[in-house]
Amino acid sequence: MTTRWIATGLSHDLPNGAVMAGQWQATELAVWRSATGKLAAWKDRCPHRGMRLSHGFVRGETLSCIYHGWVYGTDGGCKHIPAHPALTPPAAICAEGFACVEANGVLWLAPVGMAEDPPRLVDLRPVRTLSLTCDLATILGVEPALGGSDIIRGSVRIGGQDEEICLLVQPRPNGITFHALCSARADVVQVSRWLEALRRSAEEKVAA
């Protein structure tokens, strides 16, 4: 497995004060944004009892585990344990962090310490995230105008016009997820429906 940035979502799907489940290759992560908009991503496992932190909730600049309410700051360190209110939690109680950055309306994840920045996507705007139960080769077979491996690009005919499409690939256990972007002038409703048609064609090809 190579160390690289993988898109895990689109910015508009993670508002301030929210947490969601993300993934970097096979690693499940909790990705969250504080009340003031600060991003953080950790392994999706509370150091206390292993509950998924993506089931937790954001209060101000902290994320709380849904199970026993342990409170973590954006640096991953445990700040507070409700059952031991007088205790200052030791520094060893810490969620395992990942790098999470936002660029061009896309949320990117990588292990901590990546030297380079995530891919730059100029003149594109985010459309939507879409999950499919087929593999990438099937998609590329259905739409030969698209090409690539981590980042699929191509110019396709949508609503009588040639539109630039960019699909950021996130592998999943039972298929793939696309984070789709398109040229700024394209009609996002048309692009969204085109993506659904592509998914239907590809999945039906697998079923046939």
């Binding site: 689109l10 799907d13 508002p15 929210a18 939507r128 995230t129 999950s131 999943r172 997820t177």
Partner: peptide, 8 residues
């Protein structure tokens, strides 16, 4: 997990 609009 695959449905961000539903989650929001």
């Amino acid at each position: 997990d695959p449905y961000p609009a539903i989650r929001l």
